[in-house]
């Protein structure tokens, strides 16, 4: 009987360690397919319902024959479903169409703009987590301390003020009044392969500071408040009392036992918020004239450049699906209870 128990235990370790996670990932990817098809449909529908591409491309002087020819060339005289399938097919092959405004392939436009947005988002996300998590832990532990109250009031400001206002205020203080940091652009960039980076030059790094803080401030305060609330909850738990009764150091209790137990909800919210950082960097990029995808989108919306808009929509959808997948995998890494729960 003992042998059987041990054997089943070994079996469970196997399931838990090796086969459970890939199976889970595959099921998640399969779930993502319908989501992406629906978003693809909306992106495709933009072409049909927002303006008439033939009109936009023909300009002002054309004959009816020109119009029919172009409609046929673009394949717009085919049935709706055929057009949709062709669209998905093209997207799967990396063909996102040609920008009406700039007459260049959207894929290369996005590729040019991607590094700027990626670096800005990454910097904002790092700022949000590296400041938000420790601040949340601190205000959770010393909830009545004066500094905690200051943090909480400041975080309220961060949550309530709109992004553009924070950006403008930061520009006013640090660019106009103090003159420490540039107010717009990426500074000097260096090209490595197809990737232009601002992280390797002083002016590039200086240019990154204000936009990153502006973009990450809301997420920072949100993460801080979430970590604080979770810490308050976890610190009341029996296993924290027992950890104290075992004489563990405060450091081990707060940053080992308590923080790790706050992580599951924090990962959920932080993951979605980081997706939001990338998707909605539009406002920050506009305020700081940051040459990223958000700025490209705003410029495209102004002239009704639908291929760019629909591609952006698809990209954001893919991004959210990927982030959700990563979040789900992080749950597995953090909480052992999920692993066995799945395996059974």
């Amino acid at each position: 009987m003992l042998g059987a128990a041990t054997a089943s235990y070994r079996g469970r370790i196997c399931v838990r360690g090796i086969s459970a996670i890939p199976a889970f990932i595959i099921s998640r990817i399969l779930q993502a397919i319908p989501v992406l098809l629906i978003v693809g449909f909306i992106a495709f529908a933009l072409f049909a319902f927002v303006g008439d591409p033939v009109n936009i491309m023909l300009g002002t002087s054309y004959t009816e024959a020109d119009r029919v020819r172009m409609t046929h060339e673009l394949g717009l005289d085919q049935p709706f479903l055929v057009q949709y399938i062709k669209f998905i097919w093209a997207v799967l092959h990396g063909e996102f169409g040609v920008s009406y405004r700039l007459a260049r392939p959207v894929s290369s436009l996005i590729a040019e703009r991607l590094p700027a947005t990626a670096e800005l988002s990454l910097a904002a996300a790092l700022f949000a987590m590296l400041v938000g998590i420790p601040a949340g832990v601190y205000t959770g532990i010393y909830r009545n301390a004066f500094t905690s109250r200051v943090f909480m009031v400041l975080s309220l400001v961060g949550v309530s003020l709109p992004t553009f206002l924070i950006g403008i205020l930061l520009i006013l203080v640090f660019s106009v009044l103090l003159g420490w940091l540039p107010s717009y652009g990426r500074g000097t960039t260096v090209a490595i392969g197809g990737w232009t980076t601002g992280l390797l030059t002083v002016s590039g790094l200086k240019a990154l500071v204000l936009p990153a803080i502006t973009l990450g401030l809301f997420q920072m305060t949100l993460i801080m408040r979430l970590v604080r609330a979770e810490m308050l909850e976890v610190l009341r738990s029996d296993y924290i009392k027992f950890a104290r009764a075992r004489g563990l150091t405060n450091r081990a209790i707060y940053f080992g036992h308590a923080l790790k137990n706050t992580l599951v909800p924090v990962i959920t919210v932080a993951g979605l918020q980081l997706g939001g950082i990338v998707a909605f960097s539009i406002v920050t990029e506009t305020v700081f004239q940051w040459p990223g995808m958000g700025l490209l989108l705003v410029q495209s919306i102004q002239v009704g450049d639908i291929p760019v808009m629909s591609t952006y929509l698809l990209l954001v959808a893919v991004l959210f699906v990927i982030i959700n997948l990563i979040v789900d995998m992080l749950y597995f890494a953090v909480d052992p209870r999920l692993r066995v729960g799945r395996a059974r």
Partner: peptide, 13 residues
Amino acid sequence: AVFQDPLTTLNPL
């Protein structure tokens, strides 16, 4: 120290 409820006194993670 030994506490009352063993289901909650061990850190689950």
